Computed example of a mutant assay.
Amino acid sequence: MSKSTINAIKMYTKKNNEKCYMFKVYCGIDPLTGKEQYTTRRGFKTKKEANQALAQIKLEISKGEFKKKQVETYVEIYELWITQYEKTVEESTFIKTTGIFKNHILPAFGAYRIEKINVEVCQRHVDEWADKLKKFRTVKSYASKVIDFAIKRGYIEKNPLTLIEMPKKLKKLRIDDEDELENFYTKEQLIKFLKCMEQESNFKAYVLFQLLSYSGMRKGEALALTWKDIDFTKNEIRINKAISRGKNNKLYVKTTKTGIARTIKMDSATMGILKKWKKQQREDYLLLGFNTLQRNQLVFSNEQNEFLQPTKTRKWLEHVLKKYQLPKITTHGFRHTHCSLLFEANVGIKEVQDRLGHTDAQTTLNIYAHVSDKAKDEAINKLENFMNL
């Protein structure tokens, strides 16, 4: 087939019976493979538009400025980007990211031609996300990563998402704001909760919530603990891993959230309860056919002696809260509780930070600024005493 035949403008009919024009043009020899290169353009409304585009491409080829487009749409760029992204993050992070794209970003941007995405289009979709999503900034940030990737690959030159006006999500005034759930317990509430939990027949659940309350560790960290991580002689626990959910909904072990291991001191009462559970676990699981004296034995496992499903703690918790009519709290709320009580006990910010495994003190202050009512009362009492001096 001659070059002139290839470069000819052709008319074709789309599925909706619309008449359009297209062409295929020779781009030269690929220096990497030694093979002839061609590119096809279609979708022109008139033959004149097709001729103008063909002439422009020929001019770029003659000047050595033409770059063959290998992908055209946002979703095609995304498929290239996500392959590289998977190699840089934890499996659980990858799963969360693909979920954000599937549920929010690809339905909005996926079908767009990458070079046609402009500021107006981006602004409209970010405004839509802001109206319905709390973490719309995170969604916008991920959407922008794909466009940045397209810039690196030479498909476009600028990222229009960097030029939009970010919406401000104003907090709506509510008459009952003061009745909103504060996700932590006071000292008295915690003591009552643990007594109620102890009365139940589920000793494993009681031990877990005792540990969460007095260690401040994350649920995933507690569920990844093995007995070799616990030093009963020194009353210490080594926290160096956590369980998370990966591909195909499968649980796996990863590093802690910050990637940094820590060793924390524990109170003698909690360590005594853990020691009692270790003995009972051995007896209970022996009946199930498992030897729990193995070095990597999980402290908390299911009936198959495998990872305990993280959702299990919510079921245990809801049962006790409902039965004893206790204030609502989540499993993560016991980490909040631990931090709140540490502050109330006048433990320094640096010590609280290290115990909770935060990378910086500001994180500790930002997340746990809402300490208990007792600590709030003490703040105004201190001011009052100072002013009365």
Rank of each mutant, 00 (worst) to 15 (best):
N103W: 02
Y368L: 10
S141L: 14
T331G: 13
I77Q: 06
F66M: 08
E120D: 10
K312Y: 05
F307I: 00
T226Q: 11
S201F: 03
I329Q: 12
E79A: 04
K35F: 04
A50G: 03
W81N: 00
E76R: 02
I230P: 08
Y38W: 09
I239V: 14
A150N: 09
Q304I: 01
K204Y: 06
Y285G: 05
D377F: 12
R218I: 02
I164P: 02
V89D: 07
E351A: 15
N202S: 03
K35M: 02
D127V: 04
T270K: 03
K171M: 07
S92N: 13
L225K: 07
N291M: 00
D30R: 05
T226L: 09
K171Q: 08
Y12M: 05
V121R: 05
K279E: 09
F290P: 01
L190T: 03
K315V: 02
A375G: 02
A242V: 09
N51W: 00
Y285M: 07
V75Q: 13
L298A: 04
K228C: 10
Y12I: 08
V126W: 03
G28N: 11
Q280H: 11
L106T: 12
I237N: 05
G99N: 15
K140I: 13
N388Q: 13
T93H: 15
I77R: 08
S4D: 10
G357T: 07
R295D: 08
K58N: 13
E236H: 15
F343R: 07
F307T: 02
K323R: 11
G28D: 07
M271E: 09
N7T: 01
Y285L: 03
K172I: 11
E79K: 07
T73N: 02
L173I: 14
P310V: 00
V25S: 05
L194I: 02
F300E: 06
Q189Y: 06
T256D: 06
G246T: 06
L173N: 07
A261P: 13
L293M: 05
F232L: 06
V121E: 11
K158Q: 08
C339A: 15
K234W: 02
Q309H: 12
R295C: 01
N235P: 06
E76P: 01
T13K: 10
N291D: 07
F386N: 14
E165T: 14
S213E: 01
K67M: 10
V352Y: 05
N366P: 09
S62C: 03
L190E: 04
K171N: 08
L287G: 01
E60F: 06
N51V: 00
A369N: 14
G289D: 05
V75P: 00
E72Y: 01
L308R: 07
N388L: 14
D179N: 11
K158R: 12
K69H: 12
E178Y: 15
A369L: 14
I95S: 14
F290H: 04
L274F: 01
D229G: 08
V25E: 06
T313Y: 05
A269G: 01
V121N: 10
D377R: 15
